[in-house]
């Protein structure tokens, strides 16, 4: 599914500091091994003028972040991925892209991991969720960030 990934450098290039009037679309990275979940989120956020990149596992998510010119403006991560379980990927992003806010998605997180996420100030979306919950949470995260 790597071919589904978008090149995150493209929107960044569009966002030239001297363009002045042009407001760049915020870029969101969605990491989930379920293509339907990625599709639904990508469709919803694209309709709201976000730029969405996708990754199907932790390895390709890390590569995307390391290879991008600029880190994503938001990372939406599934808690359980084929090659990563728990907060490993979240910690990687905290280290390599400390300014990128993270939102976790989980079908069933153990109370310990949810507590840990809360301790690090990472919001959690319980699967299945309504798309309005997702957009509300994403909007709130960006509002907080611009404040």
């Amino acid at each position: 599914m790597v071919e589904q990934q978008r090149d995150l450098t493209v929107p960044a290039a569009r966002d030239l500091p001297d363009s002045g009037k042009k407001v760049a679309s915020p870029r969101v990275l969605v990491v989930d091994d379920e293509p339907l979940v990625r599709w639904a989120i990508a469709q919803t956020l694209t309709d709201l003028d976000y730029e969405v990149g996708e990754a199907e596992d932790a390895a390709s998510a890390k590569r995307t972040i390391l290879e991008a010119e600029q880190p994503p403006d938001l990372a939406l991560l599934d808690l359980r991925l084929p090659d990563s379980d728990g907060l490993g990927l979240a910690f990687f992003i905290r280290t390599h892209a400390p300014d990128t806010p993270i939102v976790l998605m989980t079908a069933f997180g153990t109370p310990e991991i949810l507590e840990q996420a809360a301790a690090f100030g990472i919001p959690v979306l319980n699967k299945p969720f309504d798309m309005s919950e997702l957009t509300a949470l994403v909007d709130r995260t960006f509002t907080l960030r611009t404040l």
Partner: peptide, 13 residues
């Protein structure tokens, strides 16, 4: 819940 999230999300879109 995982496939439920996938189906629900896609059908909602």
């Amino acid at each position: 819940k995982n496939p439920l999230a996938a189906v629900r999300g896609a059908i909602q879109v």
